[in-house]
Structure formats: C-alpha cells, structure tokens
Design a protein around this nucleic acid. Structure first.
Length: 296
DNA sequence: ACTGTAACCTGCAGGC
DNA sequence: TGCCTGCAGGTTACAG
C-alpha cells in the first residue's frame, strides 16, 4: 500500500512510517530461530547459490550437510551441520548467520525471484532456505563448530542475557572494564550479548540511567541488567519488534513495536515524568533518553 | 590493550 | 518531476 499524504489515513500511515526502521536484535533473532528450527531440522542441504560478496559466498560450504539444530548466540544464528553420511554424534560444522540490519530467513517451495536474495540453499525435500538482505550488512560463514575466530564479535561475545550465572555483580565488573559511555559499551556486545540500539535505549530508560554515563555503580548495574532482561523478555514474548524489513520465517511481523517507551519517541513526553525526550548522536548512534529521569 | 572513527550498503524522506 | 543530501545502524578495519 502506498501512503497517500493528502488523505487522513494516508497522513497517519506516513507518520507511522517515519518511526519504522529495521534492526534485528536478540528478540528478533530468537523469534527467527524458534520458527526456523522445526522447519529445517533433518533436512539435507544439496546445493547453494550466493551473492559473490565474501560476506556471503562461504555459505556454499554448507552444501552436502544435514541440518542438526538451530541455535543462537547473541544476534547470531548458529545452524548445526552434520557431514553426510553422518558419522559423528555432534555436528562438525556450523553455518553462522548474522542478519545485519535488513536480513531475514525464510523457507520457500520454489526458487525465489528476488534481487535481494543473498543466498539460497536447496534442501533435499524440494524446499529452499532463503537468506534475503537488502542492505548487505548481514554475514554468512561456515566454521568448525565453536571456532569463531573469523568473526571477532562472536568470538569475544559476552554472556547471554538469560544466563543464570550472570548476576548483577558479574555484569557490573564487565561494565566497569570499559571507560566508554555505558550505552556504547552495551552495543559492543562485550558485557552482554544481543543488545542493539533499540533495546539499549529502552533498558537504559527503564533503569533511569543516562546513556552517556561512563561509570555505573553496582546497584545501577544490577538495575540495568534486570531491565535488559525485562525488555528482551517482553520483546521475545511479542515475537520481536517489526521495523521496515524484518519478517519472521512465517512471513509475519512482530508486535513489540507498539510497546516501545523510548526508542523513536524523541520530542514526545516521557511516559514517567512528562519531560520531552531528547535525541542526539552518541558515538555515532542515534540515542533517545529522558533528560530528567536519566540525568547524569 | 584500549578507544574512537570511517566505511560498508540501500531505500526512503525531505528540500529545493 | 527529479535530483541531491542526509539518515538508518551492526560490525569491522584501522589509526592513534
């Protein structure tokens, strides 16, 4: 549907669209994982075609393997592969899928005719697993299981947010290991895995911590961890936040976008205190926060 | 070892 | 109408 700015409905659509923008973070990747796994486990990859970029071309190495499971670490999908014929109990290689900004995975019953398809794996049951990524910020790699040395961020990825061994004290130690702005530290994936721009703003707003703080005490770190878990957990329950291009493998959109309190609300009143939310670039990332609730 | 920054990439919106 | 510019942002290479 083309929004028509001259009609009332068109204006509304037009305004909504301004707040829409894709970003697969942990909840969106987890939603993809949950929907993809039952669709592909047990299937054997027969052939593969990819975009020529080295970001994607390694995907051909998945051909000839059977899909054993679909895991996730942070924002990375880890597709466990068995060599065929299967001799080992554990998968020997993994297909690593990073959705970047606009990536998505879906299952098709015929070869896709789409200029934005970056990889297409044909399965032995006649279906196709398709990776589509308009902006090509995504990444595909086939590695020995657990060997992430070719993917620096995954290699040095912080703990999963819901790892029970991650407590406020450990999170505080990880945060204080860096002198960067606390939000920038979160986005580095080092203190904790899977937080991107949307949920960083949301969690900092809920925890009432300034994104530009450089020192966060143990009590505030504990509060931040609790709120990261809340915003990620709620987003997973809502099947993710749907922004411009993100779709689940079912072709559905998530429902979390209507639950955002901070991201995308610059200039609008804070839902806690009514102060106008501020937006500016912080270390090259658009950041929205409440100058009153999140004062330094 | 750490920090900050430009680059990668494309569609879209806004200005003129 | 259409061209031009800026913006969105996860990751990585690189300079300091």
């Amino acid at each position: 549907m083309q929004p028509n700015p001259t009609s009332r409905v068109g204006r509304v659509l037009h305004q909504v669209k301004r707040y829409v923008g894709p970003v697969p973070e942990l909840p969106e990747v987890e939603t993809v994982r949950r929907q993809l796994e039952p669709l592909v486990v047990g299937a054997r990859i027969t052939t593969c075609e990819t975009h020529p970029s080295p970001r994607f071309s390694d995907a051909v190495l998945a051909a000839g393997n059977r899909i054993h499971r679909v895991n996730r670490r942070g924002k990375y999908l880890l597709v466990g592969l068995h060599a065929v014929p299967t001799t080992d109990v554990l998968p020997t290689r993994e297909l690593v899928i990073h959705l970047g900004m606009t990536g998505g995975v879906n299952i098709a019953t015929s070869p896709p005719d789409d200029p934005y398809v970056r990889a297409c794996w044909s399965l032995d049951d006649g279906r196709y697993m398709v990776f589509r990524d308009v902006r090509r910020f995504g990444r595909l790699a086939v590695v020995a299981t657990g060997d992430y040395s070719s993917l620096p961020t995954l290699h040095r990825l912080g703990p999963e947010p819901f790892d029970p061994s991650l407590d406020g004290s450990a999170f505080h130690s990880a945060l204080t290991a860096s002198r960067r702005h606390v939000k920038t530290s979160l986005l580095s994936q080092r203190p904790i895995a899977g937080v991107g721009n949307i949920y960083a703003d949301e969690a900092l707003w809920r925890a009432r911590i300034s994104p530009s703080a450089r020192r966060v005490g143990r009590e505030r770190a504990t509060r931040l961890l609790a709120n990261i878990r809340k915003v990620l957990g709620e987003a997973i329950a809502n099947d993710g936040t749907t922004l411009r291009d993100y779709r689940t493998p079912d072709g559905e959109t998530g429902r979390n976008q209507s639950h955002l309190d901070c991201y995308g609300r610059g200039g609008q009143p804070c839902r806690l205190c009514g102060t106008k939310l501020a937006t500016r670039q912080l270390d090259q990332r658009t950041t929205t926060w409440c100058p009153s609730c999140q004062a330094r």
